[in-house]
């Protein structure tokens, strides 16, 4: 299903749920982010691309507050993360869900218990409702019910990603952060995962921030793409804008052999 292209006019009208301004992040003397600006609008799936080792994950981690920033502001839901109280920060934290690259499931807990961790923390529910809700999420992400009582060490790579997604979705977040959700999955599994994210985004009205290398995902599910280069956003916009960009890295990324195959697949 082709989506209507997003014009600059639309962008002004839309609410930015994440607004990163002049972000500077560095480790030692090496600067990873040099005055980076990026807006993520409500209800969109933003694909975030960039060369390996340039700090795609670092931006995600900086927004999540896992990596200290040196300068700049990060606003989530219109609130500056530096200026809010721990309570309001916690309020924001329960409104986002994160899928880490390796899943980061709690290894001592079963899949069901993993999905229940945020629920137990924030909701006061009966055991029965907790179990039912957890099973619902587990089925939603396409896992079989018997996976619920397995430990993360007993799951395959694809199942770990799905289980971690179920945990990320456990509180029905408004923003979903995905760090390379399809890496390490076979093409069929990756395609299913893309469809799943698109479906969830439509049904739950999620805003998705997706770090990815997967050109198929970029073509099939992303509304907008932002490309990172040298600590800044070097191009952003829908896929057409990427194809039209004259930045050498963006050109070679979206006009390479693999990109053409993905484009043909999406068409």
């Amino acid at each position: 299903m082709p989506r209507p292209p997003i014009t600059p006019q639309d962008e002004r009208d839309r609410e930015a749920v994440i607004r990163v301004q002049d972000l500077v992040v560095g480790f030692g003397e090496r600067l990873i982010m040099k005055k980076l600006n990026l807006d993520v609008y409500r209800g969109e799936i933003l694909g975030f691309v960039g060369p390996s080792g340039q700090g795609k994950s670092v931006l995600t981690r900086a927004i999540l507050g896992l990596v200290p920033k040196r300068e700049g502001t990060i606003e989530v839901f219109g609130e500056n993360l530096d200026e809010i109280s721990p309570q309001s920060r916690q309020e924001i934290e329960r409104r986002w869900g994160v899928l880490f690259q390796q899943g980061a499931l709690f290894s001592a807990l079963t899949v069901r218990q993993n999905v229940q961790v945020p629920m137990r923390e924030y909701l006061n529910l009966s055991e029965r409702l907790l179990d039912e809700l957890a099973m619902l999420k587990i089925e939603m992400v396409g896992l079989k019910p018997d996976a619920a009582d397995k430990l993360p060490s007993e799951l395959s790579g694809g199942m770990i990603k799905r289980a971690a997604l179920a945990r990320a979705l456990s509180l029905d977040p408004e923003i979903l952060f995905l760090d390379e959700p399809t890496s390490g999955l076979d093409p069929i599994g990756a395609g299913e995962f893309d469809d799943l994210i698109a479906t969830l985004q439509r049904t739950l009205g999620l805003t998705v921030f997706m770090v990815t290398h997967d050109l198929d995902s970029l073509y099939t599910v992303c509304d907008r793409i932002a490309a990172l280069g040298d600590g800044r956003i070097i191009a952003q916009g829908p896929i057409e804008a990427m194809l039209a960009s004259d930045d050498p890295w963006v050109r070679s990324y979206f006009h390479g052999k693999r990109a053409r195959a993905a484009m043909a697949g999406a068409a």
Partner: peptide, 11 residues
Amino acid sequence: REEIDALRVMG
């Protein structure tokens, strides 16, 4: 295994 980070982002 980033489990500590996962805890943090859950608040």
